[in-house]
Design a protein around this nucleic acid. Sequence first.
RNA 1: GUGCCCGUAGCUCAGCUGGAUAGAGCGUCGGCCUCCGGAGCCGAAGGUCAGAGGUUCGAAUCCUCUCGGGCACGCCA
Length: 570
Amino acid sequence: MSESIKDILNKTLVEIIGELAGDKFSSLPVDRCVFGPPKQPEHGDFATSAPLILTKPLGQPPFDLATRMAEAFEKSPIVARAEPARPGFVNLQLSPAGWAVILDAIATEGENFGTVTTGASRRVLLEFVSANPTGPMHLGHCRHAAVGDSLARIFSAAGYEVTKEFYINDAGVQIIALGESFRARCLAKLGDPLDLEAVQYPGEYLAEFAEDFVAGKDPALVRSHTVEDFSTEARGRNLDVIRQDLAALGVFFDHYQSEKELHDANLVTRTLESLESAGAVYEKDDALWLRTEDFGDDKDRVLRKGDGTVTYLVPDLAYHHYKFERGFDLYINLFGADHAGYPPRLRAGINALGHDASKLEVLLLRLVFLTKGGQRVKFSKRAGNFVAMSDVVAEAGSDATRWFMLARSMDSEFEFDMDLATDSSSNNPVYKVQYAHARVMTMMQKASEEAALLPELDSKEAAAALTAPIEKEIIVHLSKLPEIVERSAQERAVHHIPNYLLSLAELWNRYYSMGKTDPSFRILAEENRALAPARLRLADATRRVLANGLALMGISAPDSMTRQVSDEDE
RNA sequence: GUGCCCGUAGCUCAGCUGGAUAGAGCGUCGGCCUCCGGAGCCGAAGGUCAGAGGUUCGAAUCCUCUCGGGCACGCCA
C-alpha cells in the first residue's frame, strides 16, 4: 500500500506550517489543517483552509499566511499551481507528476487499492442478524445482513481482522413455544383439529415443515415425540432457511454460536455465579438484581426472577463472557434500534464479569419499510404476515437489494423502493454503477485487440497527456477511495461507499459520452491514437476503483451487462 | 415524563467531525440515437437546511430552547 496523494500533500503542509510557525508549532491545531476537495472546480484539485485556522494562534492575517504557504507549495513537484485565495484558502492544482502518483498507485495496488492500515490487524468480532430460529427472516434482517456483511468487508479493507458471528437464540421460552407450535401443526397434518392455542408462531412456514416432516412417517412415532423433539426439528429447519436466505444475498458467517451450547456447557450458571461472587448483584423482592445503574442504566435489572428462572439477560451475558474470553480487541453488535435500552445493562454485566466493556460497541439500525407502487407495504408480526427477506432478494436480486440497504445511514429509517430496485429500464443507481464498469471492460477488451497499434507511454507521459478538466476531475475522485474506506471504518458507516461510487460512475459516464458530441474525446478512435494509452490507463483505474468499491458492498462488478428484454411490455 | 434518533428540492436521502455560490438519485419539463454499449448524456424548473437564540472570521454542521415525527424506558425476548 502506497502513500495517497492527500497524505503527501498533508505531510508537506505540516512541514510548511512548521517553517512558518517556528517554536509556536507545537501549540497549533495542526490536525485540523488538511486538504480537502473544493466545491468549485475552479478552485483547483485540492484546497485547505489552514490559513484561516492558524490566523489567530499565529497572530497573522489569513491571506498573508495563504500567500506564503502557496509560495512554498509551488516548489513541490506534484503541484502545478498553488494560489492563495481570500479570505484564507490555499488552492492547489496537481501537476502531471501528481496525477501519475494516483494512477500508478491504482495500477500497482490493483484490487488492494483502497485498503488502509488504520486497523493495525486488530481483531474484531462482528455479531449481526442473529435472527431467532423461530421463523423466516424479514426485511429488517435483510438490512442487518447487508450492513453487517459490508461493514465486515470495510473493516477488512481498513486493516482489521474480522470474524462474522451469528448468535442462535435456541434456548428459552420462545424455543419451547416453537416446539409447541410445530407439534400442533404436525398433529393437524395427522388429522387432529388444529390446536390454535398452541400455535404461537402463526406463519404458514411451520405448516409446510409439518407436511414434509410427517410425510411417510408412522403417525404413532410422530405422536411419541416430545415438545423438545419438535422444537429441535423446527429449529433446524428454520436455521436451514435462514442460511439459504443469507446465501441468496451472498452473506456467509464465520461462526454460528448456539445459545443452547452455552447452557449445555454450564456457561450460563457459571456466569451467574461469577456475577454473584463479584458482588455485582443483590437480592430484593425475591429476585436477584444486577447493579446496572452504576453503568448509566436507568435502573438495576433483574437476573433471576421470583419464580427462580433467569431473565434473557443472563444467557446474553454468558454469551458475551464467552466472546470476551476469545480475546478480541473490539466487539461490535448490530442491533435493531428497538433494543436501544439494552447496551447499558450489557456493559454493566460485562464489566462485572471482569472485562473491559468499552471494547463493546453497539450499532443500532433503524427500521426499513417496503414500498411498492408508491404504497408502503403493510405487515404485522402478530398476524404472521411480513415482508420476507427471501421475497425481496428474489424480486430485486442480491446486487440491487444490497445497494439500497447500504445506501442509507444506519440511523435513519428509509423506504426500500421495490419499483426503483427492480427498474432495469431506467436509472437504477446500482445498474448505473455496474454499467459504468461494464462499459470500461468492453472498451478495454476492444483496445486489447488493437494493442499493437497503440504507442507506448510511461506513467508520467500518460498523465501529462490527460489535459481535459474532466480527466483531472476523475483522477482526483479516484484518489479518494482510501480515505472513504478509512472514514467508513472509523464511523462504522457503510453508506459513503455507494454515494462515492455513484458520483464516480456519473463522472465516468459523462466523460465517456463526451465522445458522442466531440470526436476528440473518443478514446479508441484512430485519430486519437496518440492519447489512447493515457486514456486507457485512466479507464483501467476507473474500473478498478468501481470494482473495488462494489466489492466492499458485496455487489458484483460485471464485465458486461445482459440486457433484460421485456417483450411483454410492448 | 426521561433518554436516543430523525426533520435539507415534489419523493427517497447525502452533505466528509465548522469553510468559498446547498448536493445526488428518482420524478417533472425540454433536447441528443450514422456513435468505443441509449441500462447513457446535456439542459431547465425546484430550498426560509423545521423554528428561535447562542458560540466565531464563518453554522445545514457545534451548544441551548421550542415545534413536529419515530423508538426505547418489564421479574418479555
